[in-house]
Design a protein around this nucleic acid. Sequence first.
DNA 1: GCCGTTTTCGGCCCGACTGTTTTCAGTCG
Length: 570
Amino acid sequence: MNKKDVIRLLEKIAVYMELNLENPFKVSAYRKAAASLETDGRTLDEIEDFSALKGIGKGTNEVITEFVRTGESPVLKELEDKVPSGLVRMLKLPTLGPKKIAKIHDALGISTLEDLKTACENQEVSALPGFGKKTEENILKSIETVLNRPERYPIARVLKFQKVITDVIETIPGVERYDMTGSGRRTKETSRDLDFIVKVEDYEMFTETMVSQPFVKHVVAQGDKKLSVEIEHDFDEINVDFRFVNGDEYISTLQHFTGSKDHNVKMRQIAKARGEKISEYGVETHDGVKTFSSEEEFYNYFELPYIPPAMRETGQETDIDVTEIIKHSDIKGDLHMHTVYSDGAYSVRDMVEAARRKGYSYIVITDHSKSLRVANGLSDERLLEQLAEIRAIDKEYDDIDVYSGTEMDILADGTLDYPDDILSQLDYVIAAIHSSFQQSEEDIMKRLKAAMDNPYVRHIAHPTGRLIGVRDGYPVNMDELFDYAKQTNTVLEINANPQRLDLSSDVIANRDVMFTVNTDAHHTDHLDFMKYGVDTLQKAFVKKSQVLNAMTREEFKAFINKSKQSDINE
DNA sequence: GCCGTTTTCGGCCCGACTGTTTTCAGTCG
């Protein structure tokens, strides 16, 4: 039994209550109780009194404590007896909510998706009062499509959908400004749909152009304020919502549709306490509706510092001091990137030039090591050749320091791919696992610890090896990893590549270690991935002082020149 | 069901769009 089990219980009760047509506020109370558990940093055992948490009162506390004590929940059991489980699946169908499902169930005795499909085909549903032909068609259609579609797409996939859409928006005349909003703007690891807001006077022309695109499969909703379509790209389908803005409310609309829902609820509560009202059109104040010229101005108006999109998740972010937390502009260098020496697409010099264009003060070139043959890993000799080239190039530039490093493989038996006498010549050594993902957690931890024990290994790259939505990575004991990193003065990476983003924001929160955030670029364009890594740090409220590559040029130089051991003794 | 420097009762964020309705309920974000 862990906290996730309890959270799942509360959420399940909420769903069943919803289908049982309970008071919506009661339903939401159960969801709030679950959210409250989720945002609390402690484990189940560490929480002594659940009712001390905000949102957990007498009723939900009883449900939780009974479940924790006995492993069972009479409240859920009673609901399960009353509500057929097939109805839960129907909630996944868009346009069908708890009330319509209850009506269908009561009037036709239907409790499975299969029966619902048959009833629609026999036109029994459209015969019900309050239902019509259109509703019946929509249900039939969504049973076919939505149930075969993944519920959420990983962020790397979302970014590809995004490009398809923005490529079209760029061609539409009269568009003054547009932004992707929603979970995509907040850099969530996965998204259910895409949201855009568009400042355009002629929304009809915009709509016409968009719906005529070949990738648009279906128009879900269409009005003068919004357009909602279903698109298909590369055999994947996703919903895209557009919201039209035409006036001074752009920033309010941007803030509103960036969400999250919980963040907005919190902001509205703050406004309400001052007798004001927030909507997507602005803030209703005592003397009229106020609009803003930037989101910073919006948050400052409520006496809050600017809260970056990535942090707008639970509502907690308005209670803490966000000014110390890492910002995108704090990043002064990138410590993990590849060149043509191994599997990168550009030369050392190309990467240096690209980093200068980003305004960086320092970079480390870190190609793969010899055992990673598929990536053309460097032999000892080639590594030393590259080292000489990097030293020469570094001398040519006054405005950036170019360091030589490696992304060295931690081999299956825990040995390292280069001997210490090679490593000692490099400025900066990264170690990473690229093979034998199937090992036990114990074996993986042995490998990671062996690397961290090495006096030249500064940093563990992509510490879980996961690819979001594709593979889970190898098994890592997180507490052990953080403890050992702390002990050995090893830095842990947030890999900013949107396919990876590990360590993930939920495991790095409240950890007392140094982090570094790097793009692992194999192409000059990949240096732009930095944004997603910094967003990940922001989600976990990681401070600037905890991020290695937020150091100034001089600080980082001093860090390089000090041995790993001397850091420990500081 | 939860909560309270206006409250222990009466609220609980707010608005757009669809479909089935003759004025609005349901759903969604």
